[in-house]
C-alpha cells in the first residue's frame, strides 16, 4: 500500500512541480483559529501540512516561531489538542505530519503517541532533535502503523552521516538549508543546492528544503532542484502581524497561493 506522503510526491513529480509544505503550530493563536488557518493553507494549495507541537524550549526556532508557540501554550495547547488539530485538518482534506521536539512525545508515551497520531489521520512526524542513534523506540513504534519518520540533514552533515540519516528516514528527507534557526531570510542559503545534490546521490527519497523560504520567488528557485519546499516562519509572521483573525486567514491564504505558483517549475 502506498503511503500518503509517497502519493503526494508521486503526484507533484508527475505534475512537474515541487510539493509545497507549510508549517503552523497547533493552537496558534488559539486551537480553533489554528484549525481554520491550516485549512485555509490547504485550500490555497499547500500539499503537506506540518502541524507544530508547541514546546517550552524551542531551541531550533527563531523569534517568530518562539512567539507563536508561546501564544499557543498560553492558549492551553496540550498534546491532546495537537492530535485533535491533526484530526480536524485531516478531515478538512490535509495531509498532515506533526513537527515536534522529542520530549513531549516521550512524555506522552512513544507507543501511545504513535497510535493516537495514526488514529487522528496523521501520516508522519518530524522530530528535529531526535537523532537516528536515539530513535530506536520511535522506529519500533512507527513501524507497522503507516507513519513516516522524517529526519534532517544539514550542510555540515558528512556523506556518511547523510547515509545513516536516510537509512531510518521515510516519506521525505528534510534538508535544512542553513546553519541556523528557523526564520524568514532575504536569500535562501547558497548551501542548499549543494546539500540537495549531495543527498540526492545517497538516497532515492524525496528531498524537501526548509529554513528561510518566505516568498514565491524563493520557492521557485528551490523548486528547481528540490522535491519539496518547506515554509514556516513566513506563515507565522503573517498571522502575528495581522490585525484580526479574518485578516490572518486572508494573508495566510494569499501567501499559500503565491508559494503554490512558485513551486511550479
Amino acid at each position: 500500500m502506498s503511503r500518503p506522503l509517497d502519493e503526494v510526491f508521486t503526484a507533484t513529480r508527475a505534475a512537474g512541480r515541487a510539493a509545497l509544505i507549510g508549517y503552523l503550530p497547533a493552537g496558534f493563536p488559539t486551537p480553533q483559529e489554528s484549525v481554520e488557518l491550516i485549512t485555509a493553507m490547504v485550500h490555497a494549495g499547500v500539499d503537506i501540512i506540518e502541524v507544530g507541537l508547541p514546546y517550552s524550549d524551542p531551541l531550533m526556532d527563531g523569534p517568530a516561531i518562539q512567539e507563536a508557540v508561546d501564544l499557543a501554550l498560553k492558549a492551553g495547547t496540550t498534546t491532546d489538542v495537537v492530535l485533535d488539530t491533526v484530526a480536524q485538518v485531516t478531515a478538512a482534506g490535509a495531509t498532515a505530519v506533526v513537527m515536534s521536539y522529542w520530549n513531549p512525545i516521550e512524555r506522552y508515551g512513544v507507543e501511545r503517541f504513535a497510535a493516537r497520531l495514526a488514529d487522528a489521520g496523521g501520516v508522519g512526524v518530524i522530530a528535529p532533535d531526535l537523532t537516528p542513534e536515539e530513535a530506536g523506540p520511535w522506529i519500533a513504534a512507527t513501524t507497522g502503523r503507516g507513519l513516516d519518520r522524517v529526519f534532517l540533514v544539514a550542510p555540515s552533515s558528512t556523506d556518511t552521516r547523510i547515509t545513516t540519516v536516510c537509512s531510518v528516514t521515510s516519506g521525505f528527507v528534510y534538508a535544512a538549508s542553513t546553519m541556523g534557526v528557523t526564520g524568514a531570510r532575504s536569500e535562501v542559503s547558497s548551501a542548499a543546492p549543494a546539500l540537495v545534490a549531495r543527498t540526492r546521490r545517497l538516497t532515492s527519497l524525496p528531498i524537501a528544503v526548509g529554513l528561510g523560504v518566505s516568498t514565491g520567488a524563493q520557492a521557485h528557485e528551490v523548486a528547481a532542484y528540490a522535491d519539496g519546499v518547506i515554509v514556516g516562519s513566513a506563515f507565522v509572521r503573517r498571522i502575528l502581524d495581522a490585525v484580526d483573525h479574518a485578516s490572518a486567514l486572508a494573508r495566510v491564504g494569499d501567501l499559500a497561493a503565491e508559494l503554490a505558483v512558485g513551486v511550479t517549475r
Binding site: 531551541l59 537523532t131 534532517l152
Partner: peptide, 12 residues
Amino acid sequence: GGRFVPEALTAA
C-alpha cells in the same frame, strides 16, 4: 545522556 540535537550540530 546521549545526544538530542538538531542535525546541524552533529558535526561540531
